[in-house]
């Protein structure tokens, strides 16, 4: 049994911040490593804002926020952290970047510490082939928002050892989440399962079967979903959805993953969903800087 007292998270984007926050909430100390001092400061601010948004929804108290922030150290020092019980990389989904982070982690932390790559589309085996001890590497896929979605896909690479797998699933249970075991395969369960539904909803709009609003209402109410597929795509970001589809189409060659032309057109026009205020639906920020809500 590993006791998780401190972990490192490399990359303070949406997922990195989410993972850091969930770990700190369970009492684990986190060092969150960013690329520059400037980014580190920005991530520190964003973490505070994220927690404030949860306080506004009564999910958290102010004293819990202080305790969580006190456990997260955001730094631009890529070498100086450690020792840690586990390291998670959550840098952008580019193979070379992730491989470099893994190389650095192995050099700084040594071979024993389990290294986790957070990826939805890349191959764990390919990322960890740069390691001397790929058996200590594993993949993991949280869904956003990390604090809210209770399931995590744990992805075994070709070389991942049973011990590494056990360590990571134990860590995920400490976070209060359910893990599912996935063998390395494009899209895992969640991405592969949701992409055809998003694509089909977009096709229905493009073909004039129904309005975006009615497609979402029918599927949401008909099947008891928390939100409709188009609203969901808007939240994920249409550029991200397009990336998933292209990747699955490319890897598996099945037509069902071929991106709907309407999606391509919207991404080219910069209608990326909630983050740009416009996607299949329109969004506004009630206060500048606050999260956008449906208009």
């Amino acid at each position: 049994m590993t006791h998780f007292r401190k972990i490192a998270v490399i990359g303070g984007g949406t997922m990195g911040q989410g993972i850091a926050q969930v770990a700190a909430t369970s009492g684990i100390e986190v060092v969150l490593v960013e690329i520059s001092e400037e980014r580190a400061q920005q991530v520190q601010r964003e973490l505070g804002l994220q927690l404030d948004a949860q306080i506004a929804k009564w999910g958290l108290t102010k004293s819990e926020k202080r305790a969580i922030l006190a456990r997260v150290e955001v730094t631009a020092d890529k070498e100086g952290f450690g020792p840690v019980d586990l390291a998670v990389e959550a840098v952008p989904e580019r193979l070379a970047v992730k491989q470099q982070v893994f190389r650095d982690l192995e050099r700084v932390l040594g071979p024993d510490v389990v290294k986790v790559t957070h990826t939805a589309t890349l191959s764990v085996s390919e990322i960890s082939q740069v390691l001397q001890h790929p058996e200590r590497a594993i993949g993991m896929h949280f869904l956003p928002p990390v604090y809210r979605v209770p399931v995590v896909e744990v992805v075994r690479g070709l070389a991942t050892s049973a011990d590494t797998f056990a360590t990571v699933t134990q860590w995920i249970s400490v976070l209060g989440k359910t893990s599912v075991e996935v063998n390395e395969y494009p899209g895992y369960i969640t991405t592969r399962g949701i992409v055809p539904m998003l694509n089909e909803a977009m096709h229905m709009v493009m073909e004039g079967v129904a309005s975006a609003k009615d497609v979402d209402a029918a599927l949401r109410l008909g099947f008891g979903l928390e939100m409709g597929p188009l609203g969901m795509a808007d939240r994920i970001g249409l550029d991200q959805v397009l990336l998933w589809m292209e990747s699955l189409f490319h890897e598996l060659g099945e037509l069902k993953y071929r991106p709907c032309p309407l999606l391509r057109k919207m991404v080219r026009a910069g209608h990326l969903g909630v983050k740009t205020g416009r996607g299949f639906f329109s969004y506004v920020s009630p206060v500048p800087g606050s999260p956008a809500v449906p208009a």
């Binding site: 929804k57 009564w58 999910g59 958290l60 108290t61 809210r148």
Partner: peptide, 16 residues
């Protein structure tokens, strides 16, 4: 109305 999860509703009643 507030799109709360059961966990958020529980904290709302117990801690806020």
């Amino acid at each position: 109305k507030e799109e709360l999860t059961p966990a958020q509703a529980t904290t709302l009643m117990n801690k806020h």
